[in-house]
Design a protein around this nucleic acid. Structure first.
Lengths: 236, 236
DNA sequence: TTGCGTTAGTGAGTATAACTCACTAAATTA
DNA sequence: TAATTTAGTGAGTTATACTCACTAACGCAA
């Protein structure tokens, strides 16, 4: 029996309650991080008790994974559409890099949860969330493979290595921003990463030399041809 | 007072006890991971009780950081010496990539602790361990800067971005191995990463065309010279 | 050898938070 | 209106990091 002044018990449908819990959990996880977030606090924000949450989610961790899955659903959608509008392996690669940076910029707290609390734990491998992440990063692998098939990219670097360099590199490089320190110029960084991956950092003096040599030869040939035609003219 | 059959209390000096605890903690952390490792178990392996460990270390987490600092001390040392024996920006870059891969291959469990439990937590930033890690990754930044100064590398990519691409990429790419799945061909991967960072993945049809044009011009010049000398001979 | 101060080591106890479960009461149906 | 279902409760259990008042081993001086 409720004491005097105790709140009234509100019964919601399963679907609505699950949605509410996911929303409150997302808030609390983002504000305090996974460890510091208490299941009791998530419950308190909805005016319910801890036990109710365990009616719908097996563990606190299960709740975290479901929150992130929900987020992935939100994000996906327009990936195919965006890619379809861009032609050429290099521009398509840059689009993927840029979109990933934009997601990082717009959802740093959720990225933080994903990187710090989820990826790397035993239960991530094989989870639904893992499957969604694979599908996400697979776009880049596909773009690389298309580039190789079209003769634009070399074929001797495994696409999964490039995927790991890009996503691992972005994760490291944006870590300070994700932790709330500093800004993030996603256009500049997307350009730089695309440039490194596509052209590398080596300056190639040879290319310039070959070009200059070709010009030198061209001038010589031109001169010779003029000479020959001058010599040849009198014989006509 | 010890009960009948209870073990005898052994008193060690502070230094020896600290070393023993660090050793046992490293074992247990590696075997079970940070969360699953119990301070009581670490104590049990040394025949002491939990309280004794808290005499020498503030928290379980402090103990973890000290274990990893100890490991860093072991590793450093010969970095300068190895680098000193290699000339040229590209070979030096490859050495750093290769050495990092070798460390990952040789100490996957400690790497796992470093990546999963330490880096990314609040207390890491500004810690002694953080300082050691910075010093470690700084070698790569320095090699890049030397390469730029020597005219071997382009100067428009921030060295820290390259550092993050390399170390973040390696971390992602070796994650399966670190988790005990599959092998790690460090020579092949070092070659591939160095190749991507230095030359990129774009095939440059222009370079081939310039080369072919130069060859064509060379043949023409040769033919012309033969013609000229044939024409010139009779005049002698 | 004996007495004494220092400190390594003890182990019972505390605090916290995830998780459980027997029960209550609100909604729905017969 | 009675019966049934199930959303919600909240006190209790468990596990473990961490504390603290106390004990006993060692070194040193007389």
């Amino acid at each position: 029996m409720n004491r005097a002044g105790a709140r009234k018990i509100v019964r919601l449908g399963r679907e609505q309650r699950v949605a509410d819990i996911l929303g409150a959990a997302r808030e609390v996880f983002c504000e305090k991080g996974y460890e510091a977030a208490g299941v009791a606090e998530i419950a308190a924000r909805l005016g319910i008790v801890e036990g109710t949450i365990y009616k719908y989610f097996d563990t606190k961790r299960d709740l975290l994974l479901k929150v992130l899955e929900h987020w992935y659903e939100e994000m996906f959608g327009d990936y195919e559409r965006d890619l379809a509008g861009v032609a050429g392996a290099r521009p398509r690669l840059r689009l993927l890099v840029w979109r990933h940076l934009r997601t990082t910029r717009d959802y740093p707290l959720l990225c933080r949860l994903m990187f710090r609390e989820v990826r790397g734990e035993q239960d991530y491998r094989g989870s639904d969330l893992h499957a969604k992440n694979r599908r996400y990063t697979q776009y880049l692998v596909q773009v690389i493979e298309e580039g190789v098939a079209a003769g634009e990219f070399r074929g001797d670097i495994p696409p999964v290595l490039l995927r790991d360099l890009v996503y691992g590199g972005i994760e490291h490089h944006t870590w300070n921003y994700i932790c709330g320190r500093g800004g993030l110029d996603i256009d500049r960084i997307a350009d730089q990463i695309t440039a490194v991956v596509c052209e590398g950092i080596t300056l190639q003096p040879m290319a310039g030399q070959i070009g200059r040599e070709a010009q030198r030869l061209s001038r010589i040939v031109d001169r010779m041809e003029r000479n020959l035609s001058r010599q040849a003219r009198p014989t006509k």
